[in-house]
Design a protein around this nucleic acid. Structure first.
Lengths: 120, 120
DNA sequence: TGGTTAATTAACCTAATGGTTTTATACAAT
DNA sequence: ATTGTATAAAACCATTAGGTTAATTAACCA
């Protein structure tokens, strides 16, 4: 099992069913039965998915009469966002470099026009 | 195996070794041996982690003489960022509601001062 | 008190993950 | 040509993940 929280979070998010559950919970609190309804799997399977989300801190449950209402929890989502932010430079920088590369190509084209190009 | 790309990405990120590798690659391109050096595991294990990152599109490898240089790739990181953004409201809204709650408590405190409080 | 509804837990199965050791490949250096 | 170095692939193993069915718990209803 995942030792650290961020691993548990990413692991929980690495399943389309669980991401769909989170998307549903974005619309508001919801019972387990309502959450299960769109899926072609048994209740225990959904229940297990909820346990995974809960253990990662992505959702919380409360009892309401015979139902368990689930709601989304902010903490781990924020942590994912923060982690990802540290890589923002990767995709922004990359686009810059693509610009540079295009400009280099253009410059080279002007200088070496008609000369043999270094292959690959 | 993960059907969709986002699942493959989250799954690849759900391991501290692989996240450490990405963090290292943030500093620049790097050979497999250099990547492996900080870890207490065999080269084939690291090689497998690289395969997981590569299949998710998070890194790319190129041959350079006897080495394989790895570099980080922007696409999937951007996708994670975009996915996460749709949940930003969750943690911002939540903080707002915490504000509301605190204000409610204060209001109540003024009104019911000296009365019996609901336990817990 | 007994039955129904909502959900979880237990027990089980199969496939995937993360590691190992051993074998193979590709290039460099001599 | 041979040896060394960098890395991957194959075969294997233990654990985890995601599903199932069957049994259990908890609350409401009558």
């Amino acid at each position: 099992m995942e030792s650290d929280r961020l691993s548990a979070t990413f692991s929980a998010l690495a399943d389309p069913t669980r991401r769909a559950i989170l998307a549903r919970l974005l619309l508001g609190e919801c019972s387990v039965g309502e959450l299960a309804q769109p899926f072609e799997m048994t209740m225990p399977a959904v229940s297990k998915h909820l346990r995974v989300l809960e253990r990662a801190g992505l959702i919380a449950q409360r009892r309401d009469a015979q139902w368990r209402r689930c709601r989304i929890q902010p903490g781990p989502l924020k942590e994912v966002s923060d982690w990802t932010e540290r890589y923002r430079q990767v995709w922004e920088e990359r686009l810059d470099r693509l610009d540079d590369y295009v400009q280099q190509l253009n410059a080279k084209e002007r200088k070496t026009h008609g000369r043999k190009q270094r292959s690959k």
